[in-house]
Amino acid sequence: MSEYCLEFQNVNGKNRWFNLRDVSFKLERGFIYAIAGENGAGKTTLMQYILRAFKRYTGSILFEGEDIADKHSDVMAYIGFVSEDNQFLPDRSALQNAKSLSCFYDDFDMELYKKMLDKLGVKAGSTYHKMSRGEKIKMQLAFAIAHKSRLLLMDEATAGLDPVFRIELFKTLREMMAEEDITVLMTSHNMSEIEKNTDYTAVMKDGRLGEFHESV
């Protein structure tokens, strides 16, 4: 297994609105990495290149040393995604969602999921579309942990949430990372927030990603 959790090698991509230009970086395991940037800088596109099944870029993206384009569905079993864009069954409860969607994961741990929901303060019987934004983020986090994600992608997960919840979220992330082998890559507009709570930060502008530096 590669010492790096995620590796971008000269990734170039063209979108209708902007280009991703020659993005290269390596993420070591067990840290929280953050990409900051304005709207339209290319943060979400970068994440979509990891998550989407069809390769729409040149260069390579490696997950634990293997090119994700070669066996995307196998890799996705170990990638958790936390975002408003991530869809769950809206009229099903947190528990029903897990029962239905766990079919796609060989290692899904239902007991761990229930434990995580309990720890994060989300009722297992709450219907997804009636949950607040914060509860949805927490449920997605519990789901990602339960299917044994090794890379957690969080796209603007803290946007629009109150400061108390944000502090609680980062605290929870640190606790999870102490127990499980997880690397986190997150995007945010809020530079001060990510500088304070993450291990490494990089800035993205006009499709170019700066180097990751230690957060202060």
Partner: peptide
């Protein structure tokens, strides 16, 4: 449809980020 309303959920969007090819 969701709870007999006009809101619809498509299974392809539910499976978009799951370990299954579209």
């Amino acid at each position: 449809n969701v709870n007999n309303t006009n809101q619809y959920v498509t299974f392809s969007s539910i499976m978009r980020y799951l370990p299954v090819e579209p």
